[in-house]
Design a protein around this nucleic acid. Structure first.
Lengths: 146, 146
DNA sequence: TTAGATGCAAATGTTTTGCAGGGCT
DNA sequence: AGCCCTGCAAAACATTTGCATCTAA
């Protein structure tokens, strides 16, 4: 299992112990859309993994501090989501019809850092962009209704 | 007080009663950066206005449903913020040093809707952009330290 | 061996809700 | 008058924390 080694390196490089929970959480989030702590916990729990919800909270927090995960506020439901931090820069499109989360490869932000610096004296470190609208499936369904 | 009338029209146009709490909440948020429910409540409470926290929650929710306010998740602190919905399109820069929220007039998004449509078949209705970094004040303070 | 991880339960903080009373139209 | 709005207190959730126990290094 190649991911196992990748995860173990990620952890040891940052002076984190290679524990069962941390590797399980990384396995769930790798190649997944952003998940809530409860979703991560439930996924593992249903797979008969024994672990505690508060440990998942602590794990996500630690992995975020170390830059392995990223905490995102995509929705207004008051629940935080975590995603595997990819080296590539990705944004999301969220469907208002079915809440599907679609990763977007392109970035609309462009060279805006320069404007932020010259106009506002602001030194940009990162940005989040979320795009809301309707996905292909929902557009099709709406058309079928008519 | 011209705002009073503006607010009353906003409410009556949407079949909402013109109540004291609603007008007070709108007064606080108009021309303000996004505030948490507790900040809105405290501001009014300190001005000797008698009202209940749960009413402020309900008011913000109602005004958001009617498109008068907008609920935003700018920070990772797990607390929702509301802002007065401006007709102009505004984004925010959030300072990682002092948490100051700076409104940004320009929009880096440009004509990205077209790419979303052609590449993802996604029909964009809105977008949120948050920019994180360091404001002028924090940059200056950091330089002084050195 | 020992600092760091975990499990459990209790605490915290935010947001929601039920219900009775009050205010707007 | 009638329905919507509000206050209060309690409930519901998400998240954090204290402490004893365990475990990777």
């Amino acid at each position: 299992m190649p991911d196992q080694n990748e995860f173990e390196n990620l952890l040891t490089n940052r002076n984190l112990k290679r524990t069962k929970t941390r590797i399980l959480v990384l396995e769930v989030l790798k190649d997944s859309s952003p998940k809530t702590v409860d979703e991560i916990f439930s996924t593992l729990y249903q797979n008969h993994m024994k672990l505690s919800l508060s440990t998942v909270y602590r794990t996500c927090e630690t992995l975020t501090e170390k830059g392995i995960l990223s905490k995102v506020n995509l929705t207004d439901d008051g629940v935080a989501r975590y995603e595997y931090m990819k080296s590539e820069h990705t944004h999301h499109a969220i469907c208002l019809g079915c809440n599907k989360i679609i990763p977007i490869d392109d970035c609309p932000y462009g060279q805006f850092d320069q404007i932020m610096k010259s106009k506002y004296g602001f030194d940009v470190k990162s940005h989040h962009i979320e795009i809301y609208g309707y996905c292909q499936d929902c557009i099709r369904k709406r058309e079928e209704k008519e």
